[in-house]
């Protein structure tokens, strides 16, 4: 499938992520989970001592500064969804395969399910909840509605964030660039063709604005 085509470079690949971890308890825990061996595994695991595990981090999310206590094993996605109740980004595959959790970190589209929360310290994060200004939608959001760029809507926050990142880097993408730019996001309802139309429409809106 898309493996033959150059993947978008702005996302954290699983390989790079694992290399970046450099071992440790958190790395081991996540690596084990990514090998998918948790369901039905038999051996006893050891819970992390809470006092050692907690760390307070401060970052900006959708323009607001927040401080949260996190464990090293927590992902940014878990912190956004469970601690900050920003549930737009979804936990869909939980291993960097589908893009349902895509958020912007310092303007880059990132799979937040692979991003350790501790590394968010000091960063600027934008989630789908932070795009609209009051009740005025971002042009990408408007375009997804007008072109019906979704069906069930579950993958949509991820697609919208990837689109915002794509148009940030490539304001007038060709159809091939749109497809490649969104190839890290899966839509199981299969609305890619409509999504492509939405991205093209958003690009046009943003250039006019």
């Amino acid at each position: 499938m898309e493996n033959t085509i150059k993947k978008k470079s702005r996302t954290v690949t699983r390989r790079a992520f694992l290399q970046g971890l450099g071992g440790g308890a958190a790395g081991a825990a996540l690596a084990t989970r990514m090998r998918g061996q948790n369901a039905g595994a038999g051996q006893a695991g050891i819970a992390l001592p809470p006092a050692l595990a907690q760390k307070t981090i401060t970052f900006t999310v959708n323009g607001k500064s927040v401080s949260v206590d996190v464990e090293p094993r927590e992902t940014l996605l878990e912190v956004l969804r469970e601690k900050l109740k920003l549930t737009g980004a979804k936990k869909t595959c939980d291993r960097g395969e589908c893009g349902g959790c895509t958020v912007l970190i310092d303007g880059q589209a990132v799979y937040s399910c692979l991003f350790p929360a501790v590394r968010a310290d000091g960063r600027q994060i934008i989630t789908v909840e932070g795009l609209a200004e009051g009740e005025t939608l971002h042009p990408v959001q408007q375009a997804f509605i007008e072109k019906d760029g979704y069906q069930c809507g579950y993958c949509t926050p991820g697609f919208i964030m990837s689109t915002v990142a794509l148009l940030g880097q490539t304001p007038s993408p060709s159809l091939a660039e749109i497809k490649a730019g969104l190839s890290g996001n899966l839509c199981r309802c299969g609305n890619y063709v409509k999504i492509d139309e939405a991205v093209a429409a958003a690009s046009q809106k943003m250039r006019k604005a």
């Binding site: 039905g40 549930t87 737009g88 989630t127 789908v128 939608l137 959001q141 509605i145």
Partner: peptide
Amino acid sequence: GKLVVTGRAMYTHDIFFKDMLYAKILRSP
């Protein structure tokens, strides 16, 4: 549409109640 594209549409995954517990199931390997 507005609810969906702003991430405010509530899916079952997105429901969090106060005092809520989380279940996991052990399955046959």
